[in-house]
Design a binder for these strands. Structure first.
Lengths: 200, 200
DNA sequence: CATTATCTGAACGTTGCGTTCAGTATAACA
DNA sequence: TGTTATACTGAACGCAACGTTCAGATAATG
């Protein structure tokens, strides 16, 4: 599944050109890397891909939709994370990998996509379903293992705990008040698990 | 201080018209409420305020800058929070007030402003300095009192802890995967203070 | 070779951008 | 009182990108 290409595939007639589809996604990804979302207009994508504007509008509803598909096309790697038997180590390694990617161009582009999603509901939905949700589910599994092992409280609210882990990461990505450092990730996980109350 | 109006005030000549300034801010706020940032173009602000485009461009560099000033003009209320003597209660009440506002139109507009800031560095800076930072400082005082009282670990990293409190709130505001409920706020503060590890 | 859908290239009107210009209005100052 | 400096107006400009229309060429299926 590659995002928001919703149009039905026709059974008859000239089939959709895979070459054209890929040319569009590659051109869009290049433009995103080079000049961000601002440089990624439908017109510039069409010119770069050597494709008619009409073809793009046929398969994607908006600039944001093409952009998110191109982002997935280029950056989605399905890293499998090991089960170390320690919930803290598992969560830390997941977040470290994520913020390492976010420190690069991929982070700036993701921030712009999140920004664009604030005025593009279709993009917002694709972002939730195709990016945020899968990552939340990966972490939810890790957390559930921690609960099953007795490491974590069994009555913890899963949604809130996921927000506690991911929220600060996206907050720093988008607000840019502090860097997404490895120390930040480690302290975040540690604080979240142990709390910040003084022990007597 | 009202945001990003940076131009120096002239000592001589015709003074800036306060009436015009307010007309622009009111018109912009109205447009934001009615149709969001998309409906808030420089042209529509000028028409609504009964003002020349040139006047707007004279005092603000971009659409986002006018919008954030209008947002502050309409929504910035400086609520003073009581010191209850319990860090958990103080933080909870701060966050409850904040998310109550964010559940309304003010929240949707703030999300759009954050979105716009991803491709408008000047707006991003105004948002950090005029909105995020002051709120972080208010919470930092509460936390510092908690440390001084011995409620919180004295070696806690202030920036990370602030991210733990505000990050999840903005994450829900922007990603919209779950509502900004009061229970969410209470559980967030409680989890942050106590941690989620099972006690033996 | 008829059918059907894709793709192209060019053109269209629209919106908003950001800027220029000449002219008018309004304050402080000499 | 009039001079000076700045603010504001309204109209106009070229530009970029939007999203759509159309006729014609292309590439599969049966």
């Amino acid at each position: 599944m590659s995002g928001s290409e919703t149009t039905e595939v026709a059974k008859t007639g000239r089939p959709r050109s895979e070459k054209t589809r890929l040319a569009i996604l590659e051109a869009t990804a290049d433009l995103l890397v080079e000049g961000g979302l601002a440089a990624t207009s439908i017109e510039s994508i069409a010119a770069r891909a050597g494709v008619s504007k009409v073809t793009i509008y046929k398969w994607w509803p908006s600039r944001g939709s093409v952009a998110i598909d191109a982002y997935f096309h280029r950056y989605r790697q399905t890293t499998a994370f090991p089960d170390t038997g320690q919930v803290g180590d598992d969560l830390t390694s997941q977040i470290l990998v994520m913020i390492a990617a976010f420190r690069g161009r991929a982070g700036e582009i993701m921030a712009e996509l999140i920004g664009q999603a604030q005025s593009d509901p279709a993009l917002a939905e694709t972002l939730r379903a195709g990016w945020l949700q899968p990552r939340r589910e990966m972490s939810a599994e890790v957390i559930q293992r921690g609960i099953d092992r007795g490491e974590l409280r069994s009555d913890v609210n899963m949604a809130v705990l996921l927000d506690q882990l991911y929220g600060p990461v996206y907050y720093r990505l988008v607000a840019r008040h502090e860097p997404l450092s490895d120390d930040f990730a480690r302290e975040l996980v540690s604080n979240t698990l142990e709390g910040v109350r003084a022990r007597d």
